[in-house]
Simulated assay, not measured.
Amino acid sequence: MGRGVGRALWAHMVAALRARDLRAVTLDAGPHALPFYTRMGARQIGEAVSEVDPARRLPRMRFDLT
């Protein structure tokens, strides 16, 4: 953490998805990763139930690629 790897991976993902003319990406984030995705420009659009622990709620995030 703190070395820019996550940011580099995010930039690579965004470039690959834009090259495919996609308009948005939706993902379920770990609660502790929410600040990272928010810094990357994603916004929370709801919650999802964890497949591992049904009692756990995960932030559902959307990032617009346009």
Rank of each mutant, 00 (worst) to 15 (best):
M1L: 07
R3G: 11
G4F: 00
V5Q: 01
G6K: 00
R7Y: 00
L9R: 01
L9C: 00
W10C: 04
H12S: 07
M13F: 09
V14L: 01
V14N: 01
V14G: 06
V14M: 01
V14I: 12
A15E: 13
A16F: 05
L17Q: 06
L17V: 00
A19W: 03
R20C: 12
R20H: 09
D21I: 01
R23L: 12
A24I: 02
V25I: 15
V25A: 14
T26W: 10
L27Y: 09
D28I: 05
D28M: 09
A29E: 13
A29V: 07
G30W: 12
H32K: 11
L34A: 03
L34H: 06
P35Q: 12
F36E: 04
F36S: 01
F36M: 12
T38G: 09
T38F: 00
M40G: 12
A42I: 14
Q44G: 05
Q44K: 13
Q44I: 03
I45L: 02
I45Q: 09
I45F: 02
G46Y: 10
E47V: 03
E47Y: 09
A48W: 02
V49I: 15
S50H: 08
E51D: 15
V52F: 08
V52Q: 10
V52H: 11
D53H: 13
P54A: 02
P54E: 03
A55V: 01
R56K: 10
R56M: 12
R56H: 10
L58M: 11
P59N: 05
P59Y: 06
